[in-house]
Nucleic acid binder design. Structure first.
Length: 196
DNA sequence: CAAGAGATCATCT
DNA sequence: GATGATCTCTTGA
């Protein structure tokens, strides 16, 4: 089965739809000569400048500029001085929105069976259960900021294999208590249970 | 198991 | 000068 890379059609849709749609899909990262593929298990949507949790709500700045750009580009930033977070820009140009990739699990091996668990979708400890750890595992840093995932040879998203079934959960987003009414939006999506 | 603190720096005020 | 879309380790019940 040939892995099918997503084009801008996939990312140029409402942000929560993209966030949900990315679950169970493959994130591919070239590391040297090897291509590492992981299955996305947890995402969050950050939707436009009205969304007080979205970095772009503070305005169009050098850092958030990428989010105002075309869908399918990577928005990578440094948080707490030591961790990187990977986002994928969604929607039309000038509409600042992105999906944060919060968790994934390996395509091969025992960890795959363990990935989803619990009502909060807390993934098993596989090295990629958390946005900071995921970026550490895949060696993602600011050199990949603004990377075009539609064309990139370093990072992209694929359809991957079809899972037999997948149960999806949703919740409030993590770590955004400052976001006023937007902190309670159910814009976090995670794989609860799957069969393959 | 839960709660708290420290690490550490780009970005914005 | 303050603050995070986090993680890990330590403490203590």
């Amino acid at each position: 089965m040939k892995n099918h890379r997503f084009t801008s059609d996939f990312f140029n849709r409402p942000t929560p739809v993209v966030a949900r749609g990315l679950l169970g899909k493959f994130l591919a990262r070239r590391m040297g000569k090897k291509i590492v593929r992981v299955i996305i298990t947890e995402t969050e949507a950050y939707c436009g400048k009205k969304d007080l949790a979205c970095h772009a709500s503070k305005g169009r700045t050098k850092r958030t500029e990428v989010m105002f750009g075309p869908a399918g580009h990577a928005y990578v930033y440094l948080i707490y001085g030591m961790y990187h977070c990977l986002n994928i820009v969604t929607g039309k140009v000038d509409y600042p929105a992105a999906v944060l990739i919060r968790g994934a699990c390996p395509v091969r091996g025992r960890a795959r069976a363990l990935a989803p668990e619990g009502p909060w979708g807390r993934a098993a400890s596989n090295g990629m259960n958390g946005p900071g750890k995921l970026c550490r595992f895949l060696r993602i840093d600011k050199t990949l900021n603004d990377e075009d995932l539609i064309k990139s040879k370093r990072l992209w998203v694929e359809e991957g294999v079809k899972l037999k079934s997948m149960q999806i959960g949703r919740s409030k987003r993590i770590g955004i208590d400052y976001a006023g009414p937007y902190k309670s939006k159910l814009w976090r999506f995670f794989v609860k249970r799957w069969t393959f």
